[in-house]
Write a protein that binds this DNA or RNA. Structure first.
Lengths: 151, 151
DNA sequence: TTGACGCCCACGAAATCCCATGGTAGCCCA
DNA sequence: TGGGCTACCATGGGATTTCGTGGGCGTCAA
């Protein structure tokens, strides 16, 4: 499976459109059908937008369906998960429009950074993205970024 | 599995391309499919670029997908690992282009050294590479390092 | 109407493809 | 053993395509 790697910065045009970075597009194309589609969600831990290939998002939410349908917890969870999620389709040039609520949640204005995270990626305001990666690098190092075989 | 051995110095041309040393190329070819592909990452301990065959990188990141539940540590680790990683494909002549961020992290300008490290290799600025190997040799000797199981 | 949105085309810069070349190291054969 | 030949490899550069970006036009809904 191809994954989302690296970070890319792109510009938002006057109509509010952003190009999805080409490598991400190809990853998305192979993933599903002809049209490029995404599920966007506000991150609940960062000021950024989470972007999922629809198939992965579905797999992520599958466990929910098995929960007790009428428990209050499950109800809250599903509401939080689905109600804030936005399906998005790219135009022929591979551009998407960020829903207003998500754009303001991430604080983006005229440029955004796409940050690859393997199976998914995130969309950030550029400065916030830089701060985020710097902190992640630092914490990963001091935590001894040790993975099996990474010697 | 064939390994990456030895050190090779190559020049970066005006377009930012570097030839992957031929022996490394053959090692990469046997590893996976037809096209020569790599995953590049900034080393978190040295001023150099780590280069992994995609298959090895994937195996390296596999454990992450399993603990990818929403712990903060896992989040940092994932970000540090994926957001700084760049997939690279060689052209028909076996050359790659180093992403700007990685080139500056390693301080490379017009020549680079490929340093074999078994399953992976590193890309260095030539002087830094020389210093690195000298120091490694010295420290290995003074500590009397021996290979586990080489008795 | 007016604004939002989808579809289409246009264009410059940058990345990629493709062919050429010179040097070198290895090989073969005298 | 030496000399020439060949194949491979690192490198260069022109041609072509891709990609990000801008903008025009029609459609549909408010």
């Amino acid at each position: 499976m191809s994954q989302f790697l690296g970070t890319h910065q792109n510009r938002i045009d006057a109509k509010g459109r952003v190009s999805i970075p080409a490598p991400f597009r190809t990853a998305l194309r192979s993933d599903s059908a002809a049209a490029i589609a995404l599920v966007l969600r506000p991150s609940h831990t960062h000021a950024c937008i989470e972007a999922w290939p629809p198939a992965i998002f579905e797999r992520l939410t599958n466990p929910l369906e098995k929960l007790d349908l009428f428990s209050e917890d499950a109800d809250d969870l599903t509401t939080a998960l689905y109600a804030d999620a936005w399906p998005v389709e790219a135009d022929k040039e591979g551009r998407i429009v960020l829903p207003d609520s998500l754009a303001s949640h991430a604080g983006v204005t005229d440029s955004v950074v796409f940050m690859g995270l393997g199976r998914r990626f995130q969309i950030w305001e550029p400065q916030a993205a830089a701060a985020r990666t710097a902190r992640a690098r630092e914490r990963a190092r001091e935590r001894g970024l040790s993975l099996p075989g990474a010697a």
